[in-house]
Simulated assay, not measured.
Amino acid sequence: MTGPSLGLRTGSRTKSHAGGSRNEKPRFTLDSTLGEVLDDAQARAVLDEVVPGVSTHSLVFLARGITLADGAARLGSVEPERLAELDARLRALG
């Protein structure tokens, strides 16, 4: 059982490496949770620059499990241009 499982994982990794110049998907995107972004100093700094006040909001702990995209959709107050900038800058982190 462990043999085939290991073979599939290795094959999958090899495929993703061969498909593009990046080894893996970006660490952070709008599909990342707020908690993931807040726990990384660089990602948090980007969030603070693009959407000031989110990381220091008194109820931020309640939204740590929500993706950035879902949170923005629920709030409805973040312009699409700012979301696109946030996504691009988070992806640029690697």
Rank of each mutant, 00 (worst) to 15 (best):
T2D: 13
G3H: 06
P4E: 01
S5Q: 14
G11D: 10
G11E: 07
G11L: 15
G11C: 12
G11H: 12
S12E: 13
T14E: 11
K15F: 09
S16L: 14
H17I: 14
H17V: 15
A18C: 09
A18I: 13
A18S: 07
S21V: 14
R22H: 07
R22N: 10
N23T: 12
N23E: 10
E24H: 12
T29E: 03
L30M: 09
L30T: 13
D31T: 13
D31L: 00
T33I: 03
G35P: 06
G35F: 04
G35M: 05
E36C: 01
V37N: 03
L38F: 03
A41H: 09
Q42P: 12
A43V: 07
R44L: 07
R44W: 06
A45T: 09
A45N: 07
A45W: 00
A45E: 07
V46C: 04
D48F: 02
D48I: 01
D48G: 10
E49R: 14
E49I: 01
V50Y: 05
V51C: 07
V51K: 03
V51T: 01
G53R: 08
V54Y: 02
S55N: 05
S55C: 06
T56C: 10
H57P: 05
H57N: 14
V60A: 05
F61A: 15
A63V: 11
R64V: 15
I66H: 04
I66R: 03
T67C: 06
T67K: 02
L68C: 05
A69S: 10
A69Q: 05
D70R: 01
G71F: 02
G71N: 00
A72M: 08
R74T: 08
R74M: 04
L75G: 15
L75K: 02
L75S: 15
G76T: 09
G76E: 06
S77G: 12
E79T: 12
P80H: 09
R82K: 15
L83V: 04
L83T: 07
E85F: 04
L86S: 04
L86A: 06
L86N: 07
D87Y: 03
D87R: 01
D87K: 01
A88E: 13
R89G: 07
A92I: 13
A92N: 10
